[in-house]
Amino acid sequence: MKKIANILILIISILLIQNHSFSAETHKFLKTEWTFKGLFGKYDRASLQRGYQVYTEVCAACHSMQYLSYRNLAEPGGPEFSEQEVKVIAASFEVLDGPNSDGEMFMRPAKLSDKFVMPYDNVEASKAANGGAYPPDMSVLAKARKGGADYIYSLLLGYDDPPADIKLDDGVYYNKYMYGNKIKMSAPLSDDLIEYSDGTKATKEQMAKDITTFLMWSAEPHLETRHKTGFRVIVYLIILSILVYFTMKKIWSRVETKV
């Protein structure tokens, strides 16, 4: 058994060394409690629902979420709005459909199966409207940035006055956590910017936390199933390895060699 332990330690340390090489230039991110971290991590339902509200009222004016469908909002493991609520949400958006039998394209209210309506028709339009900067699609954003949720949370709260030695052009803002410290998005959050429908006080920190949770969910919609399945799989594997270990011992007891 000692040998096996050694091999396991070696494997894990090799992987950690290799990982370390990716995370060598870590910034100190702002710390907050995430319910979705850890072996049993789950999303905070209420936070996801508030996060969706922040998305629609603050972010959606510029940022698309092209891989999400309205039905996702009602699916288990997500914000879990009721189907009725989501139908109402979807119906408040107009989508282009067609061609109809006359060969005409037409507008209709969105359905559950429709993808989130995008704020701009294409990337060029979004750039033109935002001073040449493309507001990135937010569907997988939480996985597409080093630091993930912590990075996004920190970035949202990382706006500050620039140090004296940094000159900023018009439409460029200083952010402690942005790569190169210059960002073209103005500080999107301020206290009481929106009014939460569940009565939670809309502080900057609260909104940053809620929207980040929402973005984490949109990037990893099956995280809860993954954690739950993973725990069962690993417990199963451990029990099975113990059984196989004793089977092996028994079989090898016929020869005079230790295993």
């Binding site: 990716f22 725990f231 690993i234």
Partner: peptide, 27 residues
């Protein structure tokens, strides 16, 4: 049986990456 035992231990490490840190080895 010995290979099976070792494989199971390997699978525990494998499963840990898949279920708990699936993106840590990627970029």
């Amino acid at each position: 049986v010995k290979d099976a035992f070792a494989l199971l231990l390997f699978l525990i490490v494998f499963a840990f990456f898949v279920f708990y840190t699936p993106n840590i080895l990627g970029h």
